[in-house]
Design a protein around this nucleic acid. Structure first.
Lengths: 121, 121
DNA sequence: TGCAATAGGGAAAATATTATCCCTATATGA
DNA sequence: TCATATAGGGATAATATTTTCCCTATTGCA
């Protein structure tokens, strides 16, 4: 496993949130789990741009940060279900707020993002 | 300058927000600018854990994404001031929501984060 | 004269994150 | 018998981000 070489900053609320939400797919994972897509294969289908591998890794981190719980059913083929913890649920409104802001400003955001990319080349 | 090799996902609101806010210090920069710390040297003092260099880079991205404007005063020694754009101001409540969630859950977050780090070693 | 403050950038190294590829296992259905 | 679905991990490559180090310039102050 990758081992950190520097300690994270944990000075303020933003640092702390960053520590648990910073990860390309984490907010989407929480969101889709909330929406009822609880099995890894379903989550993968909802987020096809991510690889199975990275979803596993980020799910594990979410679990270690107590935002989700993982239930393993002892059946074959294997069945696993993730759920939000009570703690995790309290994050949903915040993720909503972010997503809504993005949706409300979709056109403008798309435009400034693409402009920046073009000027980069 | 670093040149991206893969295009970002811009499918949903969360993707779009991520594109403009994903950067270790960006939310903090927006926050402190809002608080009235507008000169680069002040921002650096508010965020001592970041290097001057990375703050410059991220400020430039925020500017290109039209969340802040940069005003250069033609004086010596140089004077520069950043301000939130109207667009940038609309992000403040969202950043607040994140920061507040972090503050409200400070103890628990600190605990789960540190636990995870310990088990990593 | 020499140092601090101001603002900022290039190049390269260090660190971190994500993707790719290949492996294990078992039951079901074609 | 062979492919598919299920879940997941190791090793390594690729990509991205952040840090480090060193450079430019000018004014004022000790």
């Amino acid at each position: 496993m990758y081992e950190r070489k520097t300690l994270p900053n944990l000075n303020c609320g933003l640092d702390l949130v960053g520590e648990v939400l910073y990860g390309k797919w984490k907010m989407r994972l929480l969101w889709f789990i909330k929406e009822g897509h609880q099995r890894p294969s379903e989550l993968q289908r909802q987020i096809p741009d991510a690889t199975r591998r990275v979803l596993n890794i980020q799910l594990k981190e979410l679990e270690e940060h107590e935002l989700v719980t993982k239930k393993i059913y002892p059946v074959v083929p294997p069945k696993v279900e993730y759920s939000l913890t009570e703690f995790g649920k309290t994050l949903i409104p915040v993720i909503s707020a972010l997503g809504n802001w993005g949706d409300e400003n979709e056109d403008r955001l798309r435009s400034v993002i693409l402009n920046r990319l073009k000027s980069e080349v």
